[in-house]
Design a protein around this nucleic acid. Structure first.
Lengths: 135, 135
DNA sequence: TATCTGTTATAGCTCATCTATATCAGATAA
DNA sequence: TTATCTGATATAGATGAGCTATAACAGATA
């Protein structure tokens, strides 16, 4: 299964799909230029309505992360960062980061510990696709 | 104004209040043990219904971040991390961190840049309350 | 012709969010 | 006592988000 969602989560299904795709791209499991499952196919695999998948794909398209072609389906954009940078995106992302880090701090996590987790997470993105280990 | 919200945001008002309080605590603007505005007072200041503020405070209470006393109102918990750690909280937080960092990575931010922002943000929490600069 | 793709429209259901009103108990101060 | 503050709770209604269901269309492909 390319993608797993949690029907019981408070996070909307289309948001979960979007998040999983973003993580798969960052982690190298979805290479740039590779094709995503068709809307109907993924909806069938996940046993949800295809409109929900369509909304997730449309969101990814708006974010400049994937391209959607009427005939060939959806594919990971080759260089998302080369697209038009959303105005105010960096500020928005920074604000969300601040909220998340503040939460960890209040819950008693030390700055070192938080930074360690950030580093570990980022390092996990540098791995090659799970097809083969780098020799 | 202790707290600012954005009526036009997609983020629910009660969530915004919760986030701003968490950030204020992490940043030292709300010291441990200090009192929060009363539900009705804050609602009046923000020009919203007091039920919305009540929901935000209740959420903060459930997270172990504040204490609410029927007579003395709400106050910042002295040591939130000493409370009962929510089962699975660390995993949940880690998952949200992973999503956020993956997003930045996909949008073209380098790992160094992301880590730099994390460090800067965490460092900003170490400042004293904005009353006075450290001599 | 048949089947796949994305796209669009409409409708309905459920639930979250927010507001509005009202009431209650308890503490505090004039 | 009277008035005013506090949080807590119940009910109701409006609005919109999220998800599903059904249908139809255009274009590509086999």
């Amino acid at each position: 299964m390319l993608l797993t969602i949690d029907l019981g989560s408070e996070v909307p299904l289309y948001q979960q799909i979007r998040d999983r795709v973003v993580e798969a791209i960052a982690g190298g499991d979805l290479a740039e230029g590779s094709a995503l499952p068709s809307i109907r196919q993924l909806a069938a695999d996940l046993a949800i309505n295809f409109h929900t998948v369509n909304k997730a794909y449309d969101l990814l398209r708006q974010e400049g992360i994937i391209r959607i072609n009427r005939k060939s389906g959806a594919m990971v954009r080759r260089d998302p960062s080369s697209g038009p940078p959303q105005p105010g995106y960096a500020d928005d992302w920074q604000a969300r980061l601040r909220t998340l880090l503040a939460e960890a701090t209040v819950q008693g996590m030390t700055a070192d510990e938080v930074l360690q987790r950030c580093g570990d997470t980022l390092a996990s993105f540098h791995t090659e696709p799970t097809t083969k280990e780098p020799a």
